[in-house]
């Protein structure tokens, strides 16, 4: 197993880990967005989708475990690689000319950190039940007055309906604004990442490179716009109780 740890500790190995975990999370983001867009089909559709997710039982935990592992691996390898790359150039240039000034590739680190911070907010905001933190959340997040607490201790959960949660949660302007900013970051992260991951894995083909780059940017834009439509629609009153 020495070869495996040597591989995973190499820069290329760590990038392979980032690409694979990123690919997993990208899959989740797309599925998650598609599911959530059911908000436009009305309360019934979204709540049914919500209880479907709650009722798949163990599978939900498998998915959560997979995502948490992917996120952990992604963040850990990103941290190691970033620290190594800072170490690889101990003396900075006085002036830097950018030959290929790609906004997308250069904002990967900031975007990643922003998405990480957003994830904390997002989890506290829309899935309070998984932490059994209902009282705390209801107290600090406006919009949960409609929820009832069921059970107590760690098994306590909030009973409110996903649709109602979404409408209440996004009626708060700063919360919606934060979501939209985060989605722009996420879209940019995907815009570079979804193209870069194929190159990391050596799965690219020079003939389709332009196409692949275009596709990555399009998926990123789709994720940013698609997800942002939800808070925007709540704010303008298109989606209401």
């Amino acid at each position: 197993m020495g070869w495996l740890s040597k591989f995973l500790n190499s820069n290329i190995g760590l990038k392979v880990l980032m690409a694979l975990s990123g690919m997993m999370m990208l899959g989740f983001v797309v599925v998650h967005m598609t599911g959530n867009l059911q908000v436009f089909l009305g309360a019934h559709a979204l709540d049914r989708y919500g209880s479907f997710l709650q009722n798949i039982g163990e599978l939900l935990w498998v998915a959560r475990l997979g995502l948490v592992s992917a996120l952990t691996i992604h963040v850990l390898s990103a941290t190691i690689l970033t620290l190594r790359s800072w170490g690889a150039r101990p003396v900075a240039y006085r002036s830097k000319y950018w030959f290929a000034p790609s906004l997308l590739s250069r904002t990967m680190l900031y975007g990643g950190v922003a998405i990480g911070l957003f994830l904390v907010l997002h989890l506290l905001h829309l899935s309070p039940s998984i932490f059994g933190l209902d009282h705390g959340i209801a107290a600090i997040t406006p919009g949960y007055e409609h929820c009832k607490t069921v059970g107590d201790g760690l098994s306590a959960s909030l009973e409110c309906g996903v649709y109602a949660n979404v409408v209440h949660g996004f009626s708060v302007v700063w919360v919606s604004a934060l979501y939209i900013v985060a989605m722009i970051f996420l879209g940019m992260h995907i815009g570079h990442g979804a193209w870069s991951m194929f190159r990391t894995l050596g799965l690219d083909n020079p003939r389709y490179d332009r196409l692949a780059q275009g596709a990555a940017v399009s998926i990123g834009a789709l994720v940013a716009v698609g997800n942002s439509l939800i808070p925007i629609s709540v704010l303008v009153g298109l989606v209401h109780l």
């Binding site: 820069n11 290329i12 760590l14 990038k15 690689l81 190594r84 790359s85 690889a88 150039r89 950018w98 030959f99 290929a100 790609s102 590739s105 250069r106 990967m108 570079h192 193209w195 870069s196 194929f198 190159r199 990391t200 050596g202 799965l203 690219d204 020079p206």
Partner: peptide, 24 residues
């Protein structure tokens, strides 16, 4: 040396036009 982020700065700076594909 550091890792590759696919920034493509190297390719543009290369006096000989070595393509990015060599990395993948």
């Amino acid at each position: 040396f550091g890792h590759c982020s696919n920034h493509q700065e190297c390719v543009r700076a290369c006096p000989k036009g070595v393509p990015l594909d060599v990395i993948s």
